[in-house]
Design a protein around this nucleic acid. Structure first.
Lengths: 232, 232
DNA sequence: CGTACCTTTGATGTGAATCAAGAGTAGTGG
DNA sequence: CCACTACTCTTGATTCACATCAAAGGTACG
Protein backbone atom coordinates (compact mmCIF):
# COMPACT_ATOMS: atom_id res chain seq x y z
CA UNK A 1 0.00 0.00 0.00
CA UNK A 2 1.34 3.43 -0.96
CA UNK A 3 1.99 5.88 1.85
CA UNK A 4 -0.75 8.48 1.43
CA UNK A 5 0.79 11.86 2.30
CA UNK A 6 -1.08 14.18 4.65
CA UNK A 7 -0.39 17.38 6.52
CA UNK A 8 0.52 16.57 10.12
CA UNK A 9 0.30 20.17 11.37
CA UNK A 10 -3.44 20.30 12.20
CA UNK A 11 -3.10 16.90 13.86
CA UNK A 12 -0.13 18.00 15.95
CA UNK A 13 -1.94 21.11 17.11
CA UNK A 14 -4.76 19.01 18.49
CA UNK A 15 -2.46 16.96 20.74
CA UNK A 16 -2.30 18.14 24.35
CA UNK A 17 1.48 18.24 24.10
CA UNK A 18 1.61 20.60 21.13
CA UNK A 19 -1.56 22.54 21.73
CA UNK A 20 -0.09 26.01 22.16
CA UNK A 21 2.67 25.84 19.62
CA UNK A 22 3.21 28.83 17.35
CA UNK A 23 2.63 28.11 13.65
CA UNK A 24 6.32 28.10 12.86
CA UNK A 25 7.05 25.77 15.78
CA UNK A 26 4.39 23.37 14.58
CA UNK A 27 5.94 23.56 11.14
CA UNK A 28 9.35 22.74 12.54
CA UNK A 29 8.04 19.73 14.42
CA UNK A 30 6.07 18.57 11.40
CA UNK A 31 9.16 18.86 9.25
CA UNK A 32 11.13 16.77 11.74
CA UNK A 33 8.43 14.12 11.93
CA UNK A 34 8.02 11.04 9.78
CA UNK A 35 4.97 8.91 9.29
CA UNK A 36 5.03 5.20 9.80
CA UNK A 37 2.35 2.75 8.72
CA UNK A 38 1.98 -0.61 10.37
CA UNK A 39 -0.34 -3.45 9.60
CA UNK A 40 -1.98 -5.55 12.29
CA UNK A 41 0.54 -7.74 14.05
CA UNK A 42 3.54 -5.80 12.77
CA UNK A 43 6.34 -4.91 15.17
CA UNK A 44 7.35 -1.27 15.56
CA UNK A 45 10.36 -1.90 17.78
CA UNK A 46 11.74 -4.66 19.94
CA UNK A 47 12.74 -4.46 23.57
CA UNK A 48 16.38 -3.39 23.52
CA UNK A 49 16.21 -1.31 20.31
CA UNK A 50 17.78 2.16 20.53
CA UNK A 51 15.34 5.08 20.83
CA UNK A 52 15.78 8.18 18.70
CA UNK A 53 12.49 9.93 19.34
CA UNK A 54 8.91 9.27 20.30
CA UNK A 55 5.70 8.23 18.59
CA UNK A 56 2.18 9.59 18.36
CA UNK A 57 -0.69 7.30 17.38
CA UNK A 58 -2.69 8.95 14.61
CA UNK A 59 -5.01 6.02 14.00
CA UNK A 60 -5.12 2.37 14.91
CA UNK A 61 -3.93 0.73 18.11
CA UNK A 62 -0.54 -0.14 19.56
CA UNK A 63 0.39 -2.38 22.45
CA UNK A 64 3.48 -2.00 24.61
CA UNK A 65 4.59 -5.22 26.30
CA UNK A 66 7.44 -7.20 27.83
CA UNK A 67 8.49 -10.38 26.13
CA UNK A 68 9.02 -13.32 28.47
CA UNK A 69 11.18 -16.40 28.28
CA UNK A 70 8.22 -18.79 28.18
CA UNK A 71 6.64 -17.22 25.10
CA UNK A 72 3.87 -15.50 27.02
CA UNK A 73 4.09 -11.73 27.36
CA UNK A 74 2.97 -8.96 29.70
CA UNK A 75 1.06 -6.05 28.15
CA UNK A 76 2.00 -2.77 29.82
CA UNK A 77 -0.19 -0.40 27.86
CA UNK A 78 -2.75 -0.28 25.07
CA UNK A 79 -2.58 2.97 23.12
CA UNK A 80 -5.13 4.56 20.79
CA UNK A 81 -5.34 7.70 18.63
CA UNK A 82 -3.86 10.91 20.12
CA UNK A 83 -1.77 8.98 22.61
CA UNK A 84 2.01 9.06 22.52
CA UNK A 85 4.76 6.80 23.79
CA UNK A 86 8.52 6.55 23.99
CA UNK A 87 9.10 10.03 25.43
CA UNK A 88 10.85 8.80 28.54
CA UNK A 89 13.50 6.63 26.89
CA UNK A 90 14.39 9.48 24.57
CA UNK A 91 15.54 11.60 27.54
CA UNK A 92 17.75 8.85 28.88
CA UNK A 93 19.79 7.39 26.03
CA UNK A 94 18.57 3.94 26.89
CA UNK A 95 17.07 1.23 24.75
CA UNK A 96 13.33 0.56 24.88
CA UNK A 97 12.41 -1.50 27.96
CA UNK A 98 9.34 -2.93 26.15
CA UNK A 99 8.42 -3.87 22.59
CA UNK A 100 5.66 -2.21 20.52
CA UNK A 101 3.32 -4.07 18.19
CA UNK A 102 0.31 -2.92 16.17
CA UNK A 103 -2.97 -4.47 17.34
CA UNK A 104 -4.66 -3.06 14.25
CA UNK A 105 -3.51 -1.39 11.03
CA UNK A 106 -2.10 1.89 12.32
CA UNK A 107 -0.64 5.20 11.31
CA UNK A 108 1.98 6.72 13.58
CA UNK A 109 3.97 9.91 13.61
CA UNK A 110 7.58 9.66 14.69
CA UNK A 111 9.09 12.81 16.18
CA UNK A 112 12.85 12.93 16.46
CA UNK A 113 14.69 13.63 19.67
CA UNK A 114 16.50 16.54 18.01
CA UNK A 115 13.25 18.32 17.17
CA UNK A 116 12.02 17.94 20.74
CA UNK A 117 15.27 19.16 22.24
CA UNK A 118 15.34 22.16 19.91
CA UNK A 119 11.81 23.11 20.91
CA UNK A 120 12.66 22.66 24.58
CA UNK A 121 15.40 25.28 24.41
CA UNK A 122 13.10 28.10 23.33
CA UNK A 123 9.69 27.16 24.63
CA UNK A 124 9.21 26.67 28.34
CA UNK A 125 5.48 26.08 27.86
CA UNK A 126 6.37 23.05 25.80
CA UNK A 127 8.76 21.90 28.52
CA UNK A 128 5.98 22.20 31.08
CA UNK A 129 3.62 20.18 28.90
CA UNK A 130 6.22 17.53 28.38
CA UNK A 131 6.79 17.38 32.15
CA UNK A 132 3.06 17.15 32.74
CA UNK A 133 2.77 14.35 30.19
CA UNK A 134 5.53 12.32 31.79
CA UNK A 135 4.08 12.98 35.23
CA UNK A 136 0.75 11.64 34.12
CA UNK A 137 2.36 8.50 32.75
CA UNK A 138 4.26 8.08 36.01
CA UNK A 139 1.08 8.51 37.99
CA UNK A 140 -0.78 5.87 36.06
CA UNK A 141 2.11 3.43 36.40
CA UNK A 142 2.04 3.99 40.15
CA UNK A 143 -1.68 3.19 40.05
CA UNK A 144 -0.86 -0.01 38.19
CA UNK A 145 1.69 -1.00 40.80
CA UNK A 146 -0.93 -0.38 43.47
CA UNK A 147 -3.46 -2.50 41.60
CA UNK A 148 -1.06 -5.38 40.99
CA UNK A 149 0.17 -5.52 44.53
CA UNK A 150 -2.86 -4.64 46.64
CA UNK A 151 -5.91 -5.71 44.67
CA UNK A 152 -7.39 -9.09 43.80
CA UNK A 153 -8.00 -10.25 40.24
CA UNK A 154 -11.69 -9.34 40.51
CA UNK A 155 -10.94 -5.90 41.90
CA UNK A 156 -8.56 -5.20 39.02
CA UNK A 157 -11.18 -6.21 36.48
CA UNK A 158 -13.83 -4.07 38.17
CA UNK A 159 -11.46 -1.12 38.29
CA UNK A 160 -10.72 -1.55 34.60
CA UNK A 161 -14.41 -1.63 33.65
CA UNK A 162 -15.12 1.46 35.70
CA UNK A 163 -12.22 3.31 34.05
CA UNK A 164 -13.80 2.63 30.66
CA UNK A 165 -16.98 4.47 31.63
CA UNK A 166 -17.49 7.90 30.02
CA UNK A 167 -15.61 10.47 32.07
CA UNK A 168 -17.38 11.84 35.12
CA UNK A 169 -19.48 8.68 35.09
CA UNK A 170 -16.86 6.24 36.31
CA UNK A 171 -18.64 4.86 39.27
CA UNK A 172 -19.52 7.86 41.41
CA UNK A 173 -23.21 7.51 40.66
CA UNK A 174 -25.72 4.69 40.32
CA UNK A 175 -27.13 3.80 36.95
CA UNK A 176 -26.55 1.98 33.70
CA UNK A 177 -23.50 2.45 31.51
CA UNK A 178 -22.56 0.84 28.23
CA UNK A 179 -18.93 0.25 27.44
CA UNK A 180 -16.89 -1.44 24.76
CA UNK A 181 -13.70 -3.40 25.38
CA UNK A 182 -10.81 -1.65 23.60
CA UNK A 183 -9.02 -4.88 22.68
CA UNK A 184 -9.31 -8.66 22.66
CA UNK A 185 -9.89 -10.35 26.00
CA UNK A 186 -6.48 -11.99 25.78
CA UNK A 187 -4.77 -8.61 25.54
CA UNK A 188 -6.89 -7.14 28.32
CA UNK A 189 -6.20 -10.15 30.51
CA UNK A 190 -2.46 -9.62 30.06
CA UNK A 191 -2.81 -5.88 30.74
CA UNK A 192 -4.51 -6.81 34.05
CA UNK A 193 -1.92 -9.45 34.82
CA UNK A 194 -4.35 -12.33 34.45
CA UNK A 195 -4.66 -15.39 32.27
CA UNK A 196 -7.49 -15.33 29.69
CA UNK A 197 -9.13 -18.19 31.59
CA UNK A 198 -9.25 -16.23 34.84
CA UNK A 199 -10.61 -13.13 33.11
CA UNK A 200 -13.32 -15.21 31.45
CA UNK A 201 -14.34 -16.71 34.80
CA UNK A 202 -14.46 -13.29 36.44
CA UNK A 203 -16.68 -11.89 33.68
CA UNK A 204 -18.87 -14.94 34.17
CA UNK A 205 -19.12 -14.38 37.91
CA UNK A 206 -19.94 -10.68 37.49
CA UNK A 207 -22.69 -11.63 35.04
CA UNK A 208 -24.13 -14.26 37.38
CA UNK A 209 -24.10 -11.69 40.19
CA UNK A 210 -26.23 -9.48 37.93
CA UNK A 211 -23.68 -6.68 37.88
CA UNK A 212 -22.91 -6.72 34.17
CA UNK A 213 -24.21 -8.16 30.94
CA UNK A 214 -21.85 -9.00 28.11
CA UNK A 215 -22.17 -9.67 24.39
CA UNK A 216 -18.79 -9.96 22.73
CA UNK A 217 -16.85 -6.80 23.49
CA UNK A 218 -19.95 -4.83 24.50
CA UNK A 219 -20.68 -4.71 28.21
CA UNK A 220 -23.59 -3.20 30.08
CA UNK A 221 -22.81 -2.17 33.64
CA UNK A 222 -26.10 -2.36 35.50
CA UNK A 223 -25.06 -0.31 38.52
CA UNK A 224 -21.65 1.30 38.73
CA UNK A 225 -21.70 1.74 42.51
CA UNK A 226 -22.77 -1.81 43.25
CA UNK A 227 -20.05 -2.98 40.87
CA UNK A 228 -17.43 -0.84 42.59
CA UNK A 229 -18.40 -2.29 45.94
CA UNK A 230 -18.47 -5.92 44.79
CA UNK A 231 -15.61 -8.03 46.23
CA UNK A 232 -15.01 -5.16 48.72
CA UNK B 1 15.23 19.60 69.17
CA UNK B 2 16.09 23.00 67.69
CA UNK B 3 16.32 23.23 63.93
CA UNK B 4 20.00 23.73 63.28
CA UNK B 5 20.29 26.16 60.38
CA UNK B 6 22.63 25.31 57.50
CA UNK B 7 23.33 26.63 54.04
CA UNK B 8 21.51 24.52 51.47
CA UNK B 9 23.32 25.98 48.44
CA UNK B 10 26.35 23.65 48.36
CA UNK B 11 24.03 20.72 48.95
CA UNK B 12 21.73 21.73 46.12
CA UNK B 13 24.63 22.13 43.72
CA UNK B 14 25.68 18.54 44.32
CA UNK B 15 22.29 17.12 43.29
CA UNK B 16 22.10 15.89 39.70
CA UNK B 17 19.03 18.04 39.18
CA UNK B 18 20.65 21.31 40.18
CA UNK B 19 24.20 20.58 39.13
CA UNK B 20 24.65 23.31 36.55
CA UNK B 21 22.69 26.09 38.17
CA UNK B 22 24.18 29.56 38.16
CA UNK B 23 24.97 30.92 41.63
CA UNK B 24 21.99 33.27 41.61
CA UNK B 25 19.67 30.48 40.49
CA UNK B 26 20.89 28.26 43.31
CA UNK B 27 20.32 31.16 45.67
CA UNK B 28 16.76 31.58 44.45
CA UNK B 29 16.01 27.89 44.89
CA UNK B 30 17.62 27.88 48.33
CA UNK B 31 15.55 30.88 49.33
CA UNK B 32 12.39 29.12 48.21
CA UNK B 33 13.28 25.93 50.07
CA UNK B 34 12.47 24.99 53.62
CA UNK B 35 14.02 22.36 55.78
CA UNK B 36 12.00 19.71 57.48
CA UNK B 37 13.18 17.41 60.26
CA UNK B 38 11.48 14.11 60.92
CA UNK B 39 12.11 11.55 63.58
CA UNK B 40 11.94 7.82 62.96
CA UNK B 41 8.38 6.70 62.31
CA UNK B 42 7.09 10.21 61.70
CA UNK B 43 4.76 10.84 58.76
CA UNK B 44 5.70 13.46 56.18
CA UNK B 45 2.46 13.32 54.24
CA UNK B 46 -0.52 11.02 53.84
CA UNK B 47 -1.89 9.57 50.66
CA UNK B 48 -4.40 12.16 49.42
CA UNK B 49 -2.62 15.23 50.83
CA UNK B 50 -2.22 18.12 48.38
CA UNK B 51 1.26 18.58 46.90
CA UNK B 52 2.86 22.02 46.74
CA UNK B 53 6.40 21.09 45.83
CA UNK B 54 8.91 18.28 46.07
CA UNK B 55 11.39 16.96 48.62
CA UNK B 56 15.08 16.16 48.65
CA UNK B 57 16.50 13.77 51.25
CA UNK B 58 19.52 15.41 52.89
CA UNK B 59 20.09 12.70 55.47
CA UNK B 60 18.15 9.77 56.87
CA UNK B 61 15.77 7.49 55.04
CA UNK B 62 12.20 7.84 53.75
CA UNK B 63 9.77 5.23 52.57
CA UNK B 64 6.96 5.80 50.07
CA UNK B 65 4.06 3.35 50.36
CA UNK B 66 0.39 2.67 49.76
CA UNK B 67 -1.82 2.17 52.75
CA UNK B 68 -4.18 -0.79 52.47
CA UNK B 69 -7.55 -1.53 54.01
CA UNK B 70 -6.27 -4.56 55.93
CA UNK B 71 -3.59 -2.61 57.78
CA UNK B 72 -0.72 -4.02 55.76
CA UNK B 73 0.97 -1.68 53.31
CA UNK B 74 2.93 -1.82 50.08
CA UNK B 75 6.28 -0.06 49.98
CA UNK B 76 6.88 1.57 46.60
CA UNK B 77 10.28 3.09 47.22
CA UNK B 78 12.99 3.45 49.84
CA UNK B 79 14.85 6.74 49.51
CA UNK B 80 18.22 7.80 50.91
CA UNK B 81 20.41 10.93 50.87
CA UNK B 82 20.55 12.87 47.56
CA UNK B 83 17.33 11.31 46.31
CA UNK B 84 14.22 13.35 45.65
CA UNK B 85 10.51 12.56 45.44
CA UNK B 86 7.21 14.23 44.74
CA UNK B 87 8.22 15.93 41.49
CA UNK B 88 5.56 14.25 39.39
CA UNK B 89 2.52 15.16 41.48
CA UNK B 90 3.66 18.76 41.54
CA UNK B 91 3.21 18.99 37.75
CA UNK B 92 -0.30 17.62 37.87
CA UNK B 93 -2.25 19.35 40.62
CA UNK B 94 -3.13 16.01 42.13
CA UNK B 95 -2.85 14.75 45.68
CA UNK B 96 -0.07 12.35 46.61
CA UNK B 97 -0.90 8.78 45.52
CA UNK B 98 1.28 7.35 48.32
CA UNK B 99 2.21 8.31 51.85
CA UNK B 100 5.74 9.15 53.07
CA UNK B 101 7.18 8.08 56.41
CA UNK B 102 10.66 8.44 57.91
CA UNK B 103 12.41 5.10 58.45
CA UNK B 104 15.12 6.93 60.43
CA UNK B 105 15.57 10.42 61.82
CA UNK B 106 15.83 12.50 58.67
CA UNK B 107 16.47 15.95 57.30
CA UNK B 108 14.65 16.96 54.14
CA UNK B 109 14.60 19.99 51.92
CA UNK B 110 11.24 21.08 50.57
CA UNK B 111 11.30 23.00 47.29
CA UNK B 112 8.16 24.83 46.33
CA UNK B 113 6.38 24.37 43.03
CA UNK B 114 6.63 28.11 42.35
CA UNK B 115 10.43 28.08 42.59
CA UNK B 116 10.63 25.17 40.18
CA UNK B 117 8.24 26.75 37.69
CA UNK B 118 10.12 30.04 37.82
CA UNK B 119 13.39 28.28 37.09
CA UNK B 120 11.79 26.32 34.27
CA UNK B 121 10.87 29.50 32.41
CA UNK B 122 14.42 30.73 32.02
CA UNK B 123 16.58 27.65 32.15
CA UNK B 124 16.06 24.94 29.57
CA UNK B 125 18.97 22.94 30.95
CA UNK B 126 17.07 22.64 34.17
CA UNK B 127 13.99 21.57 32.24
CA UNK B 128 15.99 18.86 30.51
CA UNK B 129 17.35 17.62 33.82
CA UNK B 130 13.91 17.56 35.31
CA UNK B 131 12.67 15.58 32.31
CA UNK B 132 15.60 13.20 32.62
CA UNK B 133 14.85 12.73 36.32
CA UNK B 134 11.21 11.91 35.71
CA UNK B 135 12.16 9.61 32.85
CA UNK B 136 14.50 7.70 35.10
CA UNK B 137 11.78 7.30 37.71
CA UNK B 138 9.39 6.12 35.02
CA UNK B 139 11.93 3.62 33.77
CA UNK B 140 12.49 2.10 37.17
CA UNK B 141 8.73 1.82 37.76
CA UNK B 142 8.43 -0.02 34.46
CA UNK B 143 11.16 -2.36 35.68
CA UNK B 144 9.17 -2.93 38.85
CA UNK B 145 6.06 -3.76 36.87
CA UNK B 146 8.11 -6.23 34.84
CA UNK B 147 9.49 -7.82 38.00
CA UNK B 148 6.10 -8.09 39.73
CA UNK B 149 4.37 -9.59 36.74
CA UNK B 150 6.98 -11.77 35.10
CA UNK B 151 9.35 -12.86 37.84
CA UNK B 152 9.00 -15.30 40.72
CA UNK B 153 9.55 -14.31 44.34
CA UNK B 154 13.05 -15.78 44.29
CA UNK B 155 13.96 -14.00 41.07
CA UNK B 156 12.84 -10.68 42.55
CA UNK B 157 14.97 -11.22 45.63
CA UNK B 158 17.99 -12.20 43.54
CA UNK B 159 17.52 -9.13 41.34
CA UNK B 160 17.33 -6.93 44.41
CA UNK B 161 20.54 -8.34 45.89
CA UNK B 162 22.37 -7.90 42.60
CA UNK B 163 21.20 -4.29 42.36
CA UNK B 164 22.76 -3.61 45.74
CA UNK B 165 26.21 -4.61 44.50
CA UNK B 166 28.70 -1.77 43.93
CA UNK B 167 28.09 -0.35 40.48
CA UNK B 168 29.75 -2.12 37.60
CA UNK B 169 29.89 -5.22 39.82
CA UNK B 170 26.23 -6.13 39.76
CA UNK B 171 26.47 -9.62 38.50
CA UNK B 172 28.36 -9.36 35.22
CA UNK B 173 31.42 -11.04 36.68
CA UNK B 174 32.10 -13.96 39.02
CA UNK B 175 33.40 -13.33 42.50
CA UNK B 176 32.56 -12.36 46.03
CA UNK B 177 30.63 -9.21 46.95
CA UNK B 178 29.62 -7.88 50.33
CA UNK B 179 26.42 -5.94 50.64
CA UNK B 180 24.29 -4.42 53.37
CA UNK B 181 20.51 -4.39 53.40
CA UNK B 182 19.30 -0.77 53.29
CA UNK B 183 16.29 -1.37 55.55
CA UNK B 184 14.59 -3.93 57.77
CA UNK B 185 13.62 -7.21 56.16
CA UNK B 186 9.96 -6.36 56.64
CA UNK B 187 10.31 -3.20 54.58
CA UNK B 188 12.36 -4.94 51.91
CA UNK B 189 9.82 -7.76 51.73
CA UNK B 190 7.05 -5.24 51.12
CA UNK B 191 9.16 -3.40 48.51
CA UNK B 192 9.51 -6.77 46.70
CA UNK B 193 5.85 -7.59 47.10
CA UNK B 194 6.46 -10.44 49.50
CA UNK B 195 5.52 -11.31 53.04
CA UNK B 196 8.34 -11.28 55.58
CA UNK B 197 7.88 -15.05 55.96
CA UNK B 198 8.46 -15.68 52.27
CA UNK B 199 11.52 -13.43 52.16
CA UNK B 200 12.97 -15.22 55.16
CA UNK B 201 12.46 -18.60 53.50
CA UNK B 202 14.07 -17.42 50.27
CA UNK B 203 17.14 -16.10 52.11
CA UNK B 204 17.29 -19.46 53.86
CA UNK B 205 17.14 -21.36 50.58
CA UNK B 206 19.81 -19.18 48.96
CA UNK B 207 22.06 -19.80 51.97
CA UNK B 208 21.48 -23.57 51.85
CA UNK B 209 22.28 -23.50 48.12
CA UNK B 210 25.61 -21.90 49.07
CA UNK B 211 24.94 -18.77 47.05
CA UNK B 212 24.93 -16.28 49.90
CA UNK B 213 25.85 -16.03 53.57
CA UNK B 214 23.95 -13.74 55.87
CA UNK B 215 24.54 -12.22 59.29
CA UNK B 216 21.87 -9.70 60.18
CA UNK B 217 21.73 -7.12 57.43
CA UNK B 218 25.16 -8.04 56.06
CA UNK B 219 25.17 -10.43 53.15
CA UNK B 220 28.06 -12.04 51.32
CA UNK B 221 27.31 -13.02 47.75
CA UNK B 222 29.64 -15.89 46.96
CA UNK B 223 29.29 -15.77 43.20
CA UNK B 224 27.23 -13.10 41.48
CA UNK B 225 26.84 -15.00 38.20
CA UNK B 226 25.76 -18.24 39.84
CA UNK B 227 23.30 -16.23 41.91
CA UNK B 228 21.92 -14.48 38.83
CA UNK B 229 21.38 -17.84 37.15
CA UNK B 230 19.76 -19.52 40.15
CA UNK B 231 16.04 -20.24 39.64
CA UNK B 232 16.67 -19.36 35.97
C1' DC C 1 -16.82 -23.28 4.41
C1' DG C 2 -12.79 -24.52 6.35
C1' DT C 3 -9.00 -23.25 9.14
C1' DA C 4 -6.99 -20.52 12.55
C1' DC C 5 -7.58 -18.10 16.53
C1' DC C 6 -10.28 -16.42 20.22
C1' DT C 7 -13.17 -17.58 24.29
C1' DT C 8 -15.36 -20.49 27.59
C1' DT C 9 -15.63 -24.33 30.85
C1' DG C 10 -13.89 -28.02 33.77
C1' DA C 11 -10.31 -30.56 36.50
C1' DT C 12 -6.06 -30.22 38.75
C1' DG C 13 -1.77 -28.08 40.50
C1' DT C 14 1.15 -24.80 42.96
C1' DG C 15 3.52 -20.57 44.62
C1' DA C 16 3.13 -17.73 47.98
C1' DA C 17 -0.10 -16.07 51.75
C1' DT C 18 -1.92 -16.91 56.09
C1' DC C 19 -2.04 -18.71 60.62
C1' DA C 20 0.44 -19.96 64.59
C1' DA C 21 4.42 -20.43 67.61
C1' DG C 22 8.95 -19.69 68.95
C1' DA C 23 13.73 -17.42 68.87
C1' DG C 24 16.52 -13.70 68.49
C1' DT C 25 17.58 -8.61 69.34
C1' DA C 26 17.09 -4.17 70.89
C1' DG C 27 15.85 -0.62 73.60
C1' DT C 28 13.99 0.94 78.75
C1' DG C 29 13.96 1.64 83.27
C1' DG C 30 14.70 -0.12 87.93
C1' DC D 1 23.55 -5.19 84.93
C1' DC D 2 19.58 -7.56 84.57
C1' DA D 3 14.82 -8.37 83.85
C1' DC D 4 10.89 -6.46 80.91
C1' DT D 5 8.67 -5.23 77.00
C1' DA D 6 8.34 -4.87 72.23
C1' DC D 7 9.81 -5.88 67.92
C1' DT D 8 11.81 -8.25 64.15
C1' DC D 9 12.95 -12.49 62.26
C1' DT D 10 12.51 -17.48 61.59
C1' DT D 11 10.20 -21.98 61.09
C1' DG D 12 6.38 -25.16 60.40
C1' DA D 13 1.54 -26.48 59.03
C1' DT D 14 -2.19 -25.27 56.31
C1' DT D 15 -4.98 -22.67 52.91
C1' DC D 16 -6.25 -20.25 48.82
C1' DA D 17 -6.22 -17.45 44.69
C1' DC D 18 -4.91 -17.96 40.53
C1' DA D 19 -2.28 -20.62 36.98
C1' DT D 20 -1.92 -24.53 34.21
C1' DC D 21 -3.57 -28.24 31.52
C1' DA D 22 -7.03 -30.06 28.59
C1' DA D 23 -10.91 -29.97 25.61
C1' DA D 24 -14.88 -27.96 23.63
C1' DG D 25 -17.52 -24.28 21.46
C1' DG D 26 -17.50 -19.60 18.93
C1' DT D 27 -16.22 -16.29 15.61
C1' DA D 28 -13.87 -14.19 11.87
C1' DC D 29 -12.09 -14.20 7.65
C1' DG D 30 -9.42 -15.80 3.45
Amino acid sequence: MPSIPFDPVPLLLRLPLFQELLPEQAQAIAAASRQRRLSRGEMLFQKGDPAHGFFVVVSGQIKLAFPSLQGNEKVVEILGPRQSFGEAVMFMDRPYPVFAEALADSLLLFISREAVFALLVHDSTFARRMLAGLSLRLHSLVQDVEAYSLRSATQRVVGFLLQLCPHGMNGETHGKREIHLPASKQVIASRLNLTPETLSRIFHDLSVAGLIAMRGKDIVIHDAIRLREYDL
